[in-house]
Design a protein around this nucleic acid. Structure first.
Lengths: 246, 246
DNA sequence: AGCATAATTGAATGTTCATTCAATTATGCT
DNA sequence: AGCATAATTGAATGAACATTCAATTATGCT
């Protein structure tokens, strides 16, 4: 985009530089990561790095787009094949809250980039755009569920925001609690909770980690408490009517 | 703790240094914050900084404890005066998700410190300890509610983890979406949602942002869908029976 | 008042950094 | 084959950095 002529070799170099920079950033953080270290780790002259990225800021901005794209390139295609809206939403939340997601991008790198967003306008806007797109997709999915089964009610935008909040809170919390035994339990609990909240959770009850369920009676009628399952309809308008966000 | 003899003046200097460092960190990030800048901003010799903090790492570790303590010093006393467990839990979530919380510590500083936790053992453990304590308090509150009204059911530990997840996800999401009109709506929605989830939400329904509620019928019986309000009891054991966490 | 100790200075060290520039080598196009 | 252009080198620059040390000033205690 911003770079001049690049041959195939040049494109590969550019990508290689970003990947090495990713590694250095993972090990040393924003404070310790430098173009010199990238160069020396690659065994090339520092000036070569600057041939591809005119400044350190350009490099980190490019890295942000690179890692955020990785999320989207994983998320969107995963839903394409699925026809049933309920299954699609379940696949989405399973992916976002599952074991694969945190492995997509190094956590240290992700949060270093996120924290940079408070100082760098372009970084901030890259993040904002990505979450706006994710929000759009999620709201669309939830709205599709509403149109079909009338299982979900309420504002799909709020529901989408809630899913994003749970996703990011869970990732954040993992950074703190990973390795603690209780955190795994909570992961299972959360994956079920979000499904039940969205009305695709089947018969399960909320509030109890599956690992703790033992021979319990499910009250017949409205077992799964869920904001997705109630009377008032008011058919909240779904998304898709253009860019309401930006 | 780790510092030698400090006079009152010395203590004040130490605190002043941490506060200036906080400001520099907020403006320049971990990459740009240096002991030299702290010194020059204070108009003192760089060696004076090193008299109080023998290395940059000591300084940032001290800052982390400083800002994390700010959260706890705000949170804990706020609950002390309140006798009713239901009111206490509401006060807790109102504080954690309300407008005051994000103003306690600069977001840029907070996330810079958090991201440092991926590389620095002591930083990581400070965070872990703080969240473990918050988790303990929240679970205790929720368990107290269970013992009293039997409104809440399920595992209080999972519920506490869920509140923390929502709290941190919300803060993270604010960093991305602050300023967007929809984010304010979502904030109101989330504050009501968490209360309803925990069973202290009164008559409100879930799923619709309050700003969108307009003359709607609340079905009499079990209006508020909530995992806190259902049949099976199974009196999950509350916390307080020692350090189950660490 | 005087002494121990803490607070503070100021200068110096060597390192690493981003960035520059001109020169050289490799590559692709016609 | 040859020429334009891209890829790469290597050396050099100056700034900012964390850290050191010895010397000086302020403070508090008895």
């Amino acid at each position: 985009m911003s770079t001049g002529k690049l041959t195939r070799k040049g494109e590969a170099r550019r990508k290689e530089i970003l990947e090495v920079f990713h590694d250095v950033l993972s090990c040393e953080g924003l404070e310790g990561a430098s173009m010199s270290k990238v160069a020396s780790r690659m065994g090339v002259a520092p000036s070569l790095i600057m041939h591809y990225f005119p400044s350190k800021e350009e490099m980190v901005v490019a890295l942000v787009d690179h890692i955020l794209a990785r999320y989207e390139e994983t998320f969107l295609p995963r839903l394409r094949g699925i026809g049933d809206p309920e299954e699609r939403l379940r696949a989405a939340t399973d992916l976002l809250l599952g074991p694969e997601w945190p492995g997509l991008v190094d956590e240290a790198v992700f949060y270093a980039c996120y924290s940079l967003g408070f100082r760098d306008r372009r970084v901030r806007e890259s993040f904002r755009r990505m979450y706006a797109r994710l929000r759009e997709v999620l709201a669309e999915e939830i709205a599709a569920l509403m149109d079909e089964g009338a299982v979900v009610r309420g504002d799909p935008w709020n529901a989408a925001d809630l899913v994003i909040t749970l996703l990011e809170g869970y990732d954040f919390y993992r950074g703190v609690m990973e390795g603690e035994k209780h955190f795994e339990d909570f992961g299972r609990f959360l994956r079920e909770t979000v499904l039940t909240l969205l009305g695709t959770g089947g018969e399960k009850e909320l509030g109890v980690s599956p690992s703790q369920v033992q021979a319990r009676q499910v009250p017949s009628g409205e077992a799964a408490a869920s904001y997705t399952r109630a009377a008032s309809a008011e058919k909240a308008r779904g998304p898709g009517g253009g860019a309401r966000t930006r």
